[in-house]
């Protein structure tokens, strides 16, 4: 199967088979290993990527599903000059990770949240991020990072 889609803004074509998941195609065929695979049953959120702006579990979504659609992975967040996206920077500034395995998924889920709801309340953040599991931080720094990123994005928009 020839799969054509937009990957981090670039038209991409890749050969794959019907049973391959999006995570397998991203990691093994396209060498984008920023997307992590952990639970493999759509529970932990480590593999979160955005398809047409919506968060999905790349570990279980068939790559077939992204034909002619737009996929954003953590590799697509940094700006062309190499500077980090405000969400990535906020996770660093708030030390919102320890081992870092859940972080790409956390960051992509945050991207989906803030694109849809630029000023989320704590409750809205917790509801949205409920399906992203971190076994190190205890979540408090993650919520702080999300609020910091939201404020930073707002500030940049205001400029």
């Amino acid at each position: 199967m020839k799969l054509s889609f937009l990957l981090n803004g670039r038209p991409t074509e890749v050969d794959c088979e019907a049973q391959e998941t999006l995570a397998e195609v991203l990691r093994a065929r396209l060498d984008l290993t920023g997307t992590k695979v952990s639970c493999e049953v759509q529970v932990c959120g480590a593999c979160t990527v955005l398809v047409d702006g919506l968060p999905v579990s790349a570990c279980t979504l068939l790559a077939y599903e992204v034909r002619d659609r737009s996929v954003l992975t953590v590799e697509g967040l940094a700006r062309p000059d190499g500077s980090l996206h405000p969400i990535q920077q906020a996770f660093i500034d708030e030390f919102a990770f320890q081992c870092g395995f859940c972080t790409p998924g956390m960051i992509m889920a945050t991207k989906a949240l803030l694109d849809d709801n630029p000023k989320p309340t704590d409750d809205e953040i917790i509801h949205f991020m409920d399906g992203n599991i971190c076994r190190c931080t205890g979540y408090v720094p993650i919520v702080r990072a999300i609020k910091r990123a939201a404020a930073q994005i707002q500030q940049e928009k205001g400029k």
Partner: peptide, 12 residues
């Protein structure tokens, strides 16, 4: 529906 599974499952 707002509380089915998680945000990724709800999207697909």
């Amino acid at each position: 529906e707002r509380h089915v599974a998680n945000v990724r499952v709800r999207a697909t």
